[in-house]
Design a protein around this nucleic acid. Structure first.
Lengths: 156, 156
DNA sequence: ATTTGACCTCAACTTTAGTTGAGGTTGTTC
DNA sequence: GAACAACCTCAACTAAAGTTGAGGTCAAAT
């Protein structure tokens, strides 16, 4: 009985969360959030959707792609409203990711410092260029995650 | 007389640089590199294209969008082959960018640490959520650079 | 002289993260 | 009970950074 009275309308969620309604639809299509419907087919959201959206936005700031965020959200217990502990667990995952991203950028910075000195940017000699650690995002294109449909999440 | 003998074929540039030919075409269309043509309309590249591509890939690793890289490359002196000093100047710009990116991620990490403790992720109270500094990329969509054509560069 | 591999252009497609618009329905208020 | 805001779906579009494919040409080796 987690008090489901008084669901939120799309407009309310949009203004409270700062996320456009079109984005809410998009998140729902991709299994990141869910909603109930009124008799007239309009969406109504449980209040905890705000926290989910909070998690989504924060994760995006960390640089996590939506597909991964969806996978992470899918590990939340079904049935009950997530607790603070649940959210803390998910956040800790990103903490690790963040650390990794930071240290990747730091080593890139060190390399760059070396290369500013030599002005090389030469393709074979320079540490900077050789992408042995092709972890660093190569932009958006052509990152095939898993073969098949994106945003996995055992389709609602 | 910077010795223009012995130009490189597309295939040579591709294997030496590790960049696909389709990407070379793409870079050229967007003014990042240029080429000469044989009588039979095939591309031939001056050797310094390798260094340009090096710069492009390194810049991308730093996280700079191609449009900005193009703008940066456009500041190279026309006519003469760029010197080490030229490349060093460009690299220094990215160094600043890199620092900014790193410190943004670091403060995000600090915020995240605070929030793991409270498990909040609440939309109004949490420092993490409020995007007062909407510097952090919000993904790819809808970043209108300059109104108009992307990849500015006085389009030949 | 022919074959083969490398190359050309152009259009269309890919991915991520959404937005925009058209055309139609609900829900609330006067 | 009519007006009007808010909502619905669906298709198409945007942006970045390319890739893929079709249909045709060039260059080098045999």
């Amino acid at each position: 009985m987690t008090s489901t009275r008084h669901l939120l309308t799309p407009g309310e969620v949009a203004t409270r969360s700062g996320v456009a309604i079109s984005a809410l639809h998009f998140y729902e299509r991709n299994g990141l959030i869910e909603s109930e419907r009124t008799a007239g087919n309009q969406r109504r959201y449980r209040r905890d959707v705000l926290r989910r959206i909070g998690f989504i936005r924060v994760s995006q700031r960390v640089g996590i792609p939506l597909a991964d965020i969806a996978a992470s959200l899918a590990t939340l217990p079904e049935g009950r409203t997530p607790t603070k502990q649940d959210w803390a667990r998910l956040s800790r995952t990103w903490r690790t990711e963040l650390d990794a991203r930071i240290s990747r950028l730091e080593s890139l910075r060190d390399d760059l410092d070396g290369c500013i000195g030599c002005g090389c940017l030469s393709l074979r000699s320079c540490t900077l260029y050789n992408p042995d650690d092709v972890l660093a995002g190569r932009g958006t294109g052509a990152i095939r995650l898993d073969r098949g449909q994106a945003y996995g999440g055992r389709g609602r």
